[in-house]
Design a protein around this nucleic acid. Sequence first.
DNA 1: AAAGATGTTGCAAC
DNA 2: GGTTGCAACATCTT
Length: 274
Amino acid sequence: MPELPEVETIVRSLRPHILGRKVSEIKVLLPKIIHTEGLGSTEDLIGQTITNIFRWGKNIVLEFSPNWYVRIHLKMTGQLLVSLPEEPIPKHTHVIFSLDGGKIEVRYRDIRQFGYIHIMTAGEWKKWRDGNFVGPDPLEISLPSFLARLAGKRGKIKSVLLNQAFLRGLGNIYVDEILHQAKIHPESSADHLSTEEATTLYQKMQQVLQAAIWHQGSSVSDYVDSSGKQGEYQYYHQVYGRANLPCRQCGTRIERIRVSGRSTCFCPKCQRRR
DNA sequence: AAAGATGTTGCAAC
DNA sequence: GGTTGCAACATCTT
């Protein structure tokens, strides 16, 4: 679920509640959620202060002064929820961080249990960050860099955009929305796009992501921010989740196909195959 | 009621 | 490099 706009919204909603607070206790209800590199455990975080929180692609990164980092990936159904300790613990809650002596809690909840919380040293974090697994941020990359990265890319444009090593943060919803805005067929070869098409793609990518952040993400099933609030960008979707409905641009029936194993919605008229 | 689908990603196999 | 299929798991839809 959570793609760049949702993760950004979660980080922004979490920040004022946790920044500068000290971890007093961590309850691990489902141990497999916690990942480490062998060194490090939840014990190492006790008594440490959260000095920073930021988004890295679809990852949420917490910085603890100054030795430890925690990287959280929500995968499909993960949630981070700010709660008071007396609030009932919802089903599928797997890890509970108590802050400031138990005045407030941050709870990790994940229905499908695909997500994880990775505890890393500063060195491990930097090694991961600078590895080749994650590309530039779609909102930070310049147009020339984007065009340069796209040049020589083989494969379908949808697969390229979903690849986190190409750009970090795009997922199934926003790739479909961006390609519709850019009027590009999801199965177009990346290396067949003209400079003009690639430029439009870049512009629409930034516009769609900015608009989605503005509307606090898309709640299509489980997504909520850290206060439990749903997003509203789903009301602006042009293609995602609209198979067999008329295109909002031209009225043509939206089609659903499978592209590199992912369900893909597009308008056959707005997004002509070339 | 069983089968298929669901926003992610890492891996194996080709 | 590129692709496909599958795995992790719970829940909802067909």
